[in-house]
Design a protein around this nucleic acid. Sequence first.
DNA 1: GTGAAAGCGCTAACAT
DNA 2: ATGTTAGCGCTTTCAC
Lengths: 331, 331
Amino acid sequence: MGSMNEVARLAGVSIATVSRVLNNNGNVNEATRVKILKAIKELKYQPSRVAKRLRSKGVSSNLFGVLVPDIENPFYVDVLRGIEELAYKNNSAIIMCNYGQDERKEKFYLEILQSESIDGLIAAPAHEDDVLLKKMVTDGLPVVCVDRGLSGIDVDVVLVDNAAGAFNAVDYLAKSGYRRIAYISGMPGIPSSLLREKGYRDALAANQIPFDNRLVKFGNSKHHSGVVLCRELLEMENPPDAIFTGNNLITLGALETINAMKLRIPEDVAILGFDDMYWANSLNPSLSAVRQPAYEIGKRAVELLIQRIQDPERSCIQMALNTELMKRGSA
Amino acid sequence: MGSMNEVARLAGVSIATVSRVLNNNGNVNEATRVKILKAIKELKYQPSRVAKRLRSKGVSSNLFGVLVPDIENPFYVDVLRGIEELAYKNNSAIIMCNYGQDERKEKFYLEILQSESIDGLIAAPAHEDDVLLKKMVTDGLPVVCVDRGLSGIDVDVVLVDNAAGAFNAVDYLAKSGYRRIAYISGMPGIPSSLLREKGYRDALAANQIPFDNRLVKFGNSKHHSGVVLCRELLEMENPPDAIFTGNNLITLGALETINAMKLRIPEDVAILGFDDMYWANSLNPSLSAVRQPAYEIGKRAVELLIQRIQDPERSCIQMALNTELMKRGSA
DNA sequence: GTGAAAGCGCTAACAT
DNA sequence: ATGTTAGCGCTTTCAC
């Protein structure tokens, strides 16, 4: 593939000059530039990003890290798409790290990312107080968090107003006449779950519906927990008339149970959950949902990351995007 | 974070010795080993994968490239998960390149991958005769193709028997009594589309159903083309009684149209398509589908890749996994 | 306008 | 058993 050295030799100049024309800095005679360009063509030379990265730490090496909890979740896929799209526009590639809610795996990836000398990292951490990640931030690695922040530390964050999104959804359910509204939560403990539960409770209160803790179930944010928890709910002696689900995997799981039990939506039980999907209309009935602008979250995150790389001193930004309640057939 | 040099200095030895304990090769005195280990701890030293990669080309640097056409497609997400899982077990990270069916973007990524000196690449190329990719293969980069092969060149490939999968599906439709079976194809020209069409035609023939080209539509493998093409089909004066869809995005799109037209499945129109999804049972009725073992495709690909890296001379393997017809409610 | 040379962090001969 | 040294491919002073 040819190295800079070979190009230099072929063009009869020094590697320094080659570097100059490559990076377009420093003056270089038009004639030599042409010679060099020709040599580059001839050898099909491609600069080694690895060598570049090794040499110039801190200077743009065009490699970002992305750390996501679960790539099976369409929400993160969309975030990833947003990131990828903008990274591409920025001549950058991404190292994708999917830790599958497994903290050991998360740690493994964070260490790899460090030793790959990435330019910056976009992460949805497992915990608000992720020690390793926090350390990387304080050590000066440009980081922006998505979906979840980091406690006790200043860092750029892009997320949605989870409490408001949940409130609007449950409020809508209540206003539609549902009285026994259940909530199936994702991973307990993580900020988004907590905030969504808060929105749920507040909406109940605002509509004079007493809170009933038998109507709240906690899962692990996966499809299977939606299946199981929904069944528990529906087999109660006094089952809910509507279910608010904590994320899209849970929604899908709940739907599976509802279909298996041959219940009608929304007559027997209504369902509405967090995270819209582009195929919400492929479901029968079409699915009502709280839409997070996932793709945009990813794009914004890259924007913030690039800004921070260019200006490590700029103060941190917490960007809360709006959710949108998509009213369709299921509730 | 500390470099090998600092570790060496702190431990009072040379960097060579540090390297030895790090890589567990060469003999090193137990006492010095302990000293070094201690220094490593103290400095929180982490080896730079970048330097390692630069230095030793060809030696494992634990970085794979993955090139996929469309990460929005759940099939590729599952392949990716399989890849990621096994790469992780192998201490490797992956650079994910999603080219979104855009050849320019594909080229961009292939070039980046080259200059990142990855150990190997798993790719689902845009074309069977992808010039750049072919060149990378002949230049000696370990590559394994998934879902689609490369023409006129020897390369490891992992895919499914598309023709057989399609044949079984359409044969099943025919045996179930459907006579006007339509086919909505994904990207025309790519091997999987061609092969699936072949299976479709063969099954028709095997069941004495005349081929009607008005019943075959070609799209671009995206959700939207499923929506549009399905409508064209259903608005014909003599519409199909069953639809065989070329991939899951198309299936979802078709479902959207069928729901919008308030048609009953499978009474008014049956539907069955390529690619199963873990939420096929969340659909109403549940979706019948040709299941590709996507996750396994990813795993196998990594296995083959690792083998090839270790033994560049071993002859190429074409691995065709079986599809499985998932009979559920929609057909 | 161009070249020489140092050095990024590491591995792998080659010495000792 | 351990150290010295030459690069890997590049950027970046500092000379000329």
